[in-house]
Nucleic acid binder design. Structure first.
Lengths: 276, 276
DNA sequence: AAATGTATTGCGCATCGTGCAATATACATT
DNA sequence: AATGTATATTGCACGATGCGCAATACATTT
């Protein structure tokens, strides 16, 4: 195998990274690159992104598809992450994370409050719903597991807006503002100036929770609060959904219950720095 | 590389699965096996689980660790999924959004079958049509986007009846039964006893799809199947409408196409362990 | 219909993955 | 503490197999 000069950081000259398999290393680079794209990717683009011949990438993708980690969109071409990647992520999240503890406790919260509760984390595409606990009460379910919530107009997203390091969310924030401006959108409690966003952030942090009233999605109200790590950054967001206007008030018992819940969960262990 | 007999389903004799890389196939089997363990795994156990030599598995793991998909707990011992697996999964979750994906693929299904296809989710008023893909064939229908379908007497509704958590639908079910009783309605294949409903649910789940014949809405036949999420709950329902009586038979090709469609859109548990 | 762009696939060479077994290391027992 | 056992890690040599190139198939566009 005519190995190319794609060694990234190791001092090895003889082989690849200590004791690994070269083909696998290259393949994982491809997989990671695929994950970093926003949507379906053409083979050529993916190959360019990783600086490999198309045929090489294609063979990797064939194996990934065979295993279920990747799926090709239509008949013609583009590749995207497959269901097994999602399963892998769910398994990874459920390992030693706060996610498990929070998810285990969510049914209780849902039952006590009679509301639908969902748990989301910050992914490359924004706030992503990873757990979902339905309440018996009627409720609009136009989104489900894996939904990406908007940063500005969802309670879950606003939690990350307020408690995520600015650099992490800035790209997403710019994207959403840009799109809103292009679409000519305007919102009840938020214009698109930087000052308005900062004021919103300050308000959310001050109150300790974020909310969305029925003016964005008619009839839908939600409150959300962060699960914080010891650095005060949001690791996850817990959201409660209701059709009642009243939960938006800080005096409503649901707010108290939500904050109790997230604060008790915040003491759990959090993300550990990458191994490597 | 002394290749072992790890192909079990392909007819290929020369290589492995169509155009893939053997080492990568084997490595992904390992990763998948790792994900299926509950917690940290010892190398030996993982090797046994996939029937490979420890050294082989160890080299794969070295590459996975190097890429960040796997972490080893301490200096010595056990392996677990790493942060990159979580990132990958979150990205995949967003990309495998059932509703949008199904909606994107609906035109194809409509074209292949020549039938009108609609997509519904569970809303506060019951099954709610959110996408609508008309077939060229003329068809008079009185409902459109946002219509609420009955739980008992629509194919879409029956899907939710069968694949939705009982608490979620119970209120709606009671309401419909109550109203039917008050109105003195009676239906061809369903009386209003609890047992009858349970029998209907069992039948639908057994067949994998729900149907409505022309006796409820004269001249209108429909079949519907669920798009299931990771929890096995119905995330959405895909319905095909026809005026022909024949589609109600499970032998009709449209049923096959519908089930293929929904299963491909669901988070398939049907991924076979690729390796040996 | 021609043309362009892309995905897919033979093919032969030599690179590199593999199995075995030796070694290092951690853990349990006496 | 020392020994023993079990597991993780690593050389080594062979030859199977992954790789790049280029031809082909496929699809979409002008």
């Amino acid at each position: 195998m005519t190995r190319e000069a794609e060694n990234q950081d190791e001092t090895e000259g003889s082989g690849n990274a200590r004791g690994g398999i070269q083909a696998l290393d290259a393949a994982l680079v491809v997989l990671r690159a695929l994950a970093e794209f926003d949507g379906p990717v053409a083979l050529i683009d993916l190959a360019r992104a990783v600086s490999m011949p198309s045929s090489k990438v294609h063979r990797y993708l064939a194996s990934f598809i065979h295993a279920g980690f990747v799926r090709q969109a239509n008949r013609s071409g583009r590749y995207e992450l497959g269901p097994l990647s999602a399963s892998l992520g769910i398994a990874a999240l459920g390992r030693n994370d706060f996610v498990n503890q929070a998810a285990d406790a969510m049914p209780d919260l849902s039952e006590q409050t009679g509301m639908t509760v969902l748990l989301s984390v910050w992914g490359s595409q924004g706030a992503t719903v990873i757990r979902w606990c339905r309440a018996p009460s009627p409720m609009v379910t136009s989104f489900g597991l894996g939904s990406n919530m908007p940063l500005l107009t969802s309670a879950s997203g606003r939690v990350f807006l307020a408690w995520m390091p600015r650099p992490v969310i800035s790209a997403r924030l710019n994207l959403e503002v840009e799109r809103a401006v292009e679409a000519g959108l305007s919102w009840p409690d938020l214009d698109l100036s930087a000052g308005s966003v900062d004021r919103l952030i300050a308000k959310i942090r001050g109150e300790g929770f974020a909310s969305i009233d029925g003016r964005y999605v008619p009839g839908l109200r939600a409150i959300a609060a962060p699960i914080l790590n010891w650095q005060g950054e949001a690791e996850a967001s817990v959201t409660m959904i209701s059709t009642s206007e009243q939960i938006l008030s800080a005096a409503h018992p649901a707010v108290r219950q939500l904050l109790d819940f997230t604060q008790s969960q915040s003491s759990a262990r959090s993300w550990k720095p990458a191994g490597d």
